[in-house]
């Protein structure tokens, strides 16, 4: 079971990275979104998979039952999901604003801070 997850995670990463290697900012954005899910699944799988039993202590018990899922990766992923969402929203707005300001969504044409014909810095003292 976990081996299949490993393969799925591999696909997530490969697709995300292929998208991020694009020159179009929207595709990079889609890549970032996929990457977040890939990372979450990676963490989830590393904590070992258990079917259906959530890490919630049954009333009257002091600790989790034997078949319960590992709570630690879940806690990590839960916050990661929210943070990657806000990051995604920020990137989305950044893409949108960059498109409005620069008139392009091609990252090769975004040369405002690193112009291709930059002059030499001053050579004096």
């Amino acid at each position: 079971m976990e081996a299949l997850f490993a393969v799925l995670v591999g696909f997530f990463f490969a697709a995300a990275i292929y998208l991020m290697l694009s020159r179009h900012t929207v595709r990079i954005l889609l890549g970032v979104a996929l990457l977040g899910n890939g990372v979450n699944l990676l963490l989830f799988t590393t904590g070992r998979l258990v079917r259906e039993v959530p890490p919630i202590i049954v009333a009257g018990q002091e600790t989790l039952g034997t078949g319960a899922a590992n709570p630690l990766p879940q806690a990590l992923i839960l916050t990661a999901i929210v943070i990657s969402f806000s990051f995604f929203a920020f990137l989305l707005v950044l893409t949108y604003r960059a498109y409005q300001e620069l008139g392009t969504d091609n990252s090769d044409r975004m040369r405002l801070s690193e112009p291709s014909d930059e002059p030499l810095p001053p050579m004096g003292y």
Partner: peptide, 13 residues
């Protein structure tokens, strides 16, 4: 590049 990274993560996992 993407496949190499994906493969790397699969193997690592």
């Amino acid at each position: 590049i993407a496949t190499a990274c994906g493969l790397g993560f699969t193997l690592l996992l």
